[in-house]
Amino acid sequence: MTRTQTALVIGGTRFIGRHTVAEFREAGYDVYMLNRGNHENPFADAEDVTHVQGDRTDRDALLDARDKADPDVVVDCVAYYPADVEAAVEVFSDVGGYVYISSGSAYDSEEIPKRESETPLCPCSDKQATDESGSTYGNRKAEGDRIVFEAAKEGVNAMSIRPCIVYGPYDYTERLDFWIDRVATHDRVLIPGDGDNIWHRAYVEDVAHALRLVAERGEPGEAYNVGDRQLVTLREMVELIADVMDREIEVVAADGRELAAGGLEPDDYMLYREYPHVLDTCKLAGLGWESTPIQEAMERTIEEHLESDRDGSEHDPGRDAEERVLGVLDTM
């Protein structure tokens, strides 16, 4: 009798981890999840998903999960510090595939596009390796990549994927929820800059699929970028949301000087980036990966958004301030 393959997902209940568990289940794996149990488990009633409670920063918890799951592959969704990756590549040195989720933020160059084996990675000092601020996120992720590469040289089947900004159902960051709510509640949607700025995004189900493909087919010591095959500008993204929601809106672009009339700056807005951030995904496509058409991805995202209570209000720069900007623009 053929043994069912087992996947261990470190994380597993929120956003990328949740979709990763679903991806491996659909592929016929028995799935174990290691997490602290602080969030509702969407797979509590699933017979093919086993929860192992523990803190991933505790090496003994990693060992316990390894021994209980006896995994063929491991996906590490919550390794935010180099020490996390160091422990994982040691504990899971004998698995068929260990995949570390890095980030497009690990790149230390504004090349267009950013390529896995060509674009330099961010440096990481000892201080940055333990820093908890968002400013060192890319440094820490890059150092995790380097640990993966070194482990592969020692025979560990370790790989990494580098997603750009991830969006989709169950996104607790509410980055895209802000824009969906803006389209749903206002006829005039203010966007920063000229609206043509590009920040490459990746649909979460495609990220989960990439994780499985890399775990099964990836080359140890390699990194794989993940991002939508079709890129859209910020304006096009808002217009796509409106199209899916069947909303007639006016998209109004305002540059920095115009936003200042409301005491706003372009960086006050989610998913705005002055310089384009684009990842080359050809290496991942070589493993047989394809991305979901953006219309379909947005439809699924909005459908779940409407069933949730998320509105992205924590990212709201203030509608009153926007109205002042719109008023100034109307007089120009």
Rank of each mutant, 00 (worst) to 15 (best):
Y137G: 05
G168E: 05
D255Y: 00
V73A: 03
H39G: 01
G138A: 01
D309E: 14
E150C: 09
M1K: 15
V95I: 06
D48F: 05
R59P: 06
K114C: 07
A253T: 10
G256K: 13
R229T: 13
D255K: 02
D255A: 03
D60W: 10
N225T: 11
R14T: 15
V91H: 04
L287Y: 09
T4I: 11
E26D: 13
C164I: 06
T136W: 04
Y29M: 03
E248T: 15
D177E: 15
G218P: 00
R257I: 14
S103T: 13
E236W: 08
V95C: 06
D70P: 03
P220K: 03
E248M: 06
D60C: 13
T2C: 01
I302Q: 02
P82H: 02
I10T: 08
R300P: 03
D84A: 08
R25L: 13
Y81K: 14
Y81I: 10
F149C: 09
S133C: 07
A210P: 02
G318A: 12
E274Q: 13
V183M: 05
L284Y: 07
H186L: 10
A46S: 15
R18M: 08
M159A: 01
M298G: 05
V52L: 00
V183F: 08
E205D: 15
F43E: 05
G327T: 09
D45Q: 12
E314D: 14
M298D: 02
F178V: 04
A106W: 09
A184N: 11
D67Q: 05
V78C: 15
E26W: 14
H305D: 05
V49T: 08
D84W: 01
T57K: 10
Y98P: 12
K127Y: 07
S160C: 08
R201K: 14
N139C: 11
D171Q: 07
L211V: 06
H200Y: 10
G17W: 04
D70S: 06
A87D: 13
E219A: 02
E222N: 09
P42N: 02
L284P: 01
L326V: 14
A65H: 06
G144Y: 05
T331H: 00
P120H: 10
I16C: 09
R324C: 08
E154I: 09
D194N: 12
L62V: 02
G218Q: 03
A210R: 08
Q128C: 03
V148C: 09
I161Y: 04
R212T: 10
H19P: 04
G193M: 00
N157F: 01
M270F: 00
D228P: 04
I191G: 08
T301C: 01
E222T: 10
I180V: 11
A152N: 12
K283D: 15
V74D: 02
E90R: 12
R201P: 04
Q5M: 14
E239M: 08
S313C: 02
Y98S: 05
Q53V: 15
S103G: 08
R162Y: 02
A321V: 07
L284C: 01
E23D: 12
E290L: 14
D126I: 12
N139P: 03
A7E: 00
V232C: 11
E219Q: 06
A61H: 00
D108S: 10
R56P: 01
P276S: 11
G11W: 05
R175P: 03
R324F: 08
S103N: 07
N197H: 13
D131F: 09
K153D: 12
M245D: 02
R319S: 03
S103P: 11
D58T: 11
H51I: 09
E111Y: 01
F149T: 11
T57S: 09
C77E: 11
